[in-house]
Design a binder for these strands. Structure first.
Lengths: 205, 205
DNA sequence: TCACGACAATACGGTACCGTATGAATACGC
DNA sequence: GCGTATTCATACGGTACCGTATTGTCGTGA
């Protein structure tokens, strides 16, 4: 054994803090418990960070980076916007059950520093959704509406699946798949939803 | 002034606890702060409840009662199921911005006693939505899908509006109204959404 | 009317955490 | 290898809360 207990870096603490944040919200980012978990003492912590706030902030930065990276990686492969949208929604829904961490982070948005980061991430996602719906051919306001619907439905879904498993009648893996199918079809369906648009396929570049 | 400081009942404590629960989640249901807020001391609290858990439980009971009462009252007046659905969704969305309390209670569902109550309330709502969509003429699975979509969209909407005001591009009162219109239209629109259903209007009783 | 039970005030000990202080252990440039 | 900076351990004081104990006060019904 080279080092029975290697020394820790600020990054190690941020990583542990992010995990705690996803597990129990901002309240769970507590120095002393984290120190125990990392096999050290809080004396060490204050060598890396000025205070608890700084640690929370570092964890959030980590989360923001990964959230945007993940969003980008999903985008890369598929050229067709409709297929892209379809894939995005399907994948998001499939991972919904495991996303307790995202839900917990969002729940910590009562804390303003958390809210600022979460707001950025969410706004980016919604904007991206809007652009996809526009690329698929919906006019601006309709695209905004559908993006908002898709996004809020996603947020509500992870909230329900993570916190209240079994409460939705679509909770079994099979039923979820059918549900997602149905929602995607509805979201992509052209209809006179408020704008004078009824054209079935043709879209202007 | 008849009583500068009247004596308190268990109900007064439960009421205050419910407000705290809606304001800061289950963590905010703390006896000493509540005592201050009620103008008394915690010595009094333990005359009414065995411990903090019992108080949380009492507050949740209050919430559950009111939640179901509210749901019922919306139902009474309108006979036509489609109009009823329309009204329900519209009203829910309009109140979305103020529903921080519901969001906070839901966020406390990490606490299992809270989760049990919230699950009941949510299941009731979804079931009611399913029944409305069935009455409107959708077959069972399609009704389940649309109910789930409506409900998750609602949960996501209050979450976003309450915690991250301004993050959605439909946040101004006018824009919200347009959004709701659009969503209601989409949810009520007949389409081959996964079931062999393509008939445009006619529905069997 | 007055005793008893319901409510209230205060004090206490306990837990979990934050942040500081101080000194010891370790890594690393030279 | 030696000195300095980084990292770690421990002890301390402070805050916010839970729950108990003790004793005081009030209101109401027999």
């Amino acid at each position: 054994m080279t080092s029975r207990r290697r020394r820790l870096s600020a990054h190690d603490w941020a990583e542990a803090a992010l995990e705690a944040l996803g597990t129990g919200g901002v309240a769970a980012v507590a120095i002393e418990p984290l120190a125990v978990r990392l096999g050290t003492t809080k004396g060490s912590f204050y060598a890396h960070y000025a205070n608890r706030e700084a640690l929370v902030s570092a964890a959030l930065t980590l989360w923001e980076q990964r959230s945007t990276e993940a969003a980008i990686s999903t985008l890369e492969t598929e050229p067709d916007p409709e297929a892209r949208l379809r894939r995005l929604l399907t994948q998001a829904a499939r991972r919904a059950g495991q996303n307790l961490s995202e839900t917990n982070i969002m729940a910590s948005a009562g804390h303003e520093p958390v809210a600022a980061v979460v707001r950025r991430v969410m706004q980016r996602r919604v904007q991206y959704l809007v652009s996809l719906f526009e690329q698929v051919g919906f006019p601006r306001t309709e695209a905004v509406h559908r993006a908002a619907l898709a996004h809020t439905a996603y947020v509500g879904l992870i909230e329900m699946m993570a916190r209240l498993p079994g409460a939705l009648p679509i909770d079994s893996p099979g039923a979820t798949a059918g549900y997602v199918e149905s929602v995607v079809a509805l979201l992509l369906h052209r209809t006179g939803g408020g704008d004078p648009q009824e054209k079935p396929e043709g879209l202007l570049p």
